[in-house]
């Protein structure tokens, strides 16, 4: 289990900012100006907070929950990106076709379709893992590329806008779009939905039987099977599909809340950033809310850092990457001391 100690996230964020500052200084940038721009771009105004930071955090939050759920059960679902695309296509299609219906009907139908599509995209890796023991890291990762290219082909073909000129679909009808959560900003109700799901998942892990069994399978698969009499195959399958469903939901929420049409390359690698989001949160669903907002803020602030201080946007990726490294360092410290603490147990 890659679970850092409690101070791990703070250490990771501190490390990322420190290393980035030094690197920016060496690169000749004005560091205070750059970090100031980063901060203002993320939290400097109502618009920055809602229309940029929080809005960007929504797909990260949903995919982050998907990853946290799977990792907790010891399932290495690296395919949130592909599952997100599957959900986006399914959600868009349902919304487009059913656009004449009232929002109270079409929105739930879209979200349901995206859940099913995300789960379906995870179904093949699930079967491969549980039947043949194929490593899910490989299958989920490869299916990401299939999903991305399949989506691009659909947008270039059957789903292309009527004129057949632009590489995008026609826009969603009004009734198939998500309402605004924070009036005067771009923040849509998908954010509230994502936060609610995080709370639900936290309650599931902490208080329910199935959540307990998922943790047991992740922490001690043998003991869960033998002492706990858990049907770990069935449980793992359920978790894997649910993880795919959550990632699929992220796709539909983004399309219905932000893009309002389907574009190729609609995700900026959120399904991968989700792994960092989940690990930084130590796989705790409530903490995923905070880490998703953190990464949303870095991405929002990165844009303003580029505009104001001329720092290339790619530095955002560097900050994210160093954060993950920081988490892994903290997790390494934990497993080492775990070995220490194990010494007296056999004495």
């Amino acid at each position: 289990m890659i679970r850092a100690r409690w101070w791990g996230p703070f250490f990771a964020i501190g490390l990322a900012l420190a290393v980035t500052s030094v690197a920016l200084a060496l690169g000749g940038y004005d560091v205070p100006q750059a970090l100031g721009a980063l901060w203002r771009g993320a939290f400097g105004s109502e618009q920055a907070i809602a229309s940029f930071t929080l809005k960007r955090s929504v797909p990260l939050l949903l995919t982050g929950l998907a990853v946290a759920l799977a990792f907790r059960a010891g399932i290495w679902n690296i395919g949130a990106e592909g599952q997100l695309y599957a959900g986006a296509v399914a959600g868009f299609t349902v919304g487009f076709v059913g656009g004449g219906l009232p929002a109270a009907v079409v929105i739930p139908a879209m979200l349901a379709a995206s859940l099913v599509a995300g789960a379906a995209w995870a179904a093949f890796p699930t079967v491969m893992k549980l039947r043949g023991g194929t490593n899910e890291v490989i299958t989920t990762l490869l299916l990401n590329f299939v999903a991305i290219h399949l989506t691009a082909w659909l947008i270039d073909g059957p789903l292309q806008e009527p004129q057949g000129v632009y590489n995008e679909t026609a826009p969603l009808p009004e009734s198939a779009t998500l309402g605004t959560l924070w009036p005067g900003t771009d923040l849509h109700v998908g954010f509230a939905l994502a936060v609610a799901l995080a709370v639900v998942l936290w309650v599931v892990f902490r208080f329910t039987r199935v959540g307990f069994l998922i943790r047991a399978v992740g922490e001690g698969p043998e003991a869960a099977r033998i002492a706990g009499r858990v049907d770990s195959g069935r449980l793992s399958a359920g978790v894997f599909l649910a993880s795919g469903a959550l990632a699929g939901l992220a796709g539909a929420v983004h399309v219905a809340g932000v893009d309002l049409a389907l574009y190729p390359g609609l995700s900026q690698g959120w399904g991968y950033t989700a792994i960092a989001v989940a690990l930084l949160a130590r796989l705790n669903p409530l903490a995923v809310i905070a880490t998703a907002i953190f990464f949303g803020a870095i991405q929002a602030g990165g844009t303003s850092m580029q505009r104001v201080a001329g720092v290339p946007l790619a530095w955002v990726n560097v900050i994210e990457a160093i954060t993950v490294i920081g988490v892994l360092i903290a997790a390494r410290g934990r497993s080492r001391s775990g070995g220490d603490a194990g010494a007296p147990e056999a004495a």
Binding site: F212, L213, R215, A216, E222, A223, A227, R229, E345
Partner: peptide, 22 residues
């Protein structure tokens, strides 16, 4: 093999007591 099959080391005692009795 109590360490591997009987108990989950990172779980607390109450959680281990819940195993199989959930």
């Amino acid at each position: 093999d109590r360490g591997r099959e009987g108990l989950i080391g990172s779980f607390d005692l109450a959680e281990n007591v819940a195993l199989g009795h959930h």
